[in-house]
Structures are given as C-alpha cells and as structure tokens.
Amino acid sequence: MDLMGMMGKLKETQQKIEDTKKRLDTVLINEQSADGLLKVTLTANRAIKSITINDTLLEDKEQLEDYMILVLNNAIEKATKTNEAELDAVAKMDMPMIPGMDNLFK
C-alpha cells in the first residue's frame, strides 16, 4: 500500500472539495411559493442571497411567516441536495475507498 501516494491523493481531493465549495457559492437555487408571492434565492452553500415579498403578503403577518418558513425550508432542502451531490461526486471520483473514511468529508 503506497501511503505517500494515498496522502497526496487525499490532499488533492481535499483541494477539489474546497474548490467545489467555492463554486457552490455561485450556484443559485431559486424557490418560490406556489402563487409566486414570495421568492427566495440562495446559494448551494445555503447562504440567502435575496428575498422578494409581494406587497399583498405584508398585510397578513401570519401568512407571511408561514410562507417564509415553507419557502425557505424548500430552498434549503434543494440547496442541501445540490451541495451533497456535488461534494459526494468529488469524493467518490477521487478517493480510494478506505473503510471508515467515507464519513470524513461530511
């Protein structure tokens, strides 16, 4: 077993993961309520970039709060799936499978 080669590969993979995380800052996830009154954009790293609220929602605080929770949760779920899929792809592509190492990058 070539330990030096594996360590080099590990470093290379960590760099690719860092590069992927940086790139995910530029991947935008758009989500909106079914009626389009509330729109949210966040990065695949789950940073909120914008929230657009239709004026009609400003008249009903409770409805606005419900919309915020629903739309943000949906957007975060989509962003998380995108994030995990991208990072898993990098890890699977580059990593020699070492038992117990598969949780290292989670």
Results as ranks from 00 to 15, higher is better:
1 M>H: 11
2 D>R: 11
2 D>M: 04
4 M>V: 12
5 G>W: 05
6 M>K: 12
8 G>P: 06
8 G>A: 03
9 K>Y: 04
11 K>M: 15
11 K>V: 15
12 E>Y: 12
12 E>W: 08
13 T>D: 01
14 Q>H: 10
14 Q>W: 07
17 I>N: 01
19 D>T: 08
23 R>H: 08
30 N>Y: 09
33 S>G: 07
34 A>M: 02
34 A>K: 12
38 L>Q: 04
38 L>Y: 07
38 L>T: 08
38 L>N: 08
40 V>C: 07
41 T>C: 14
44 A>H: 02
46 R>G: 02
46 R>P: 11
46 R>N: 10
47 A>K: 15
48 I>L: 09
53 I>E: 09
53 I>D: 11
54 N>V: 01
54 N>T: 02
55 D>Q: 12
58 L>G: 03
60 D>Q: 13
61 K>Y: 05
62 E>Q: 14
62 E>D: 11
62 E>I: 15
62 E>P: 00
63 Q>A: 14
64 L>P: 07
64 L>N: 06
67 Y>L: 05
68 M>R: 15
71 V>K: 06
72 L>F: 13
74 N>Y: 03
75 A>H: 05
76 I>Y: 15
76 I>N: 09
77 E>R: 15
79 A>K: 07
81 K>Q: 01
84 E>V: 07
84 E>P: 08
84 E>N: 14
86 E>H: 10
86 E>Y: 10
88 D>I: 04
89 A>K: 14
89 A>P: 01
90 V>Y: 04
91 A>L: 04
92 K>C: 02
94 D>P: 02
94 D>R: 02
96 P>W: 01
96 P>C: 00
96 P>V: 11
97 M>R: 11
99 P>T: 14
100 G>R: 05
101 M>S: 02
101 M>K: 00
101 M>C: 00
102 D>P: 00
103 N>R: 11
103 N>W: 14
105 F>R: 03
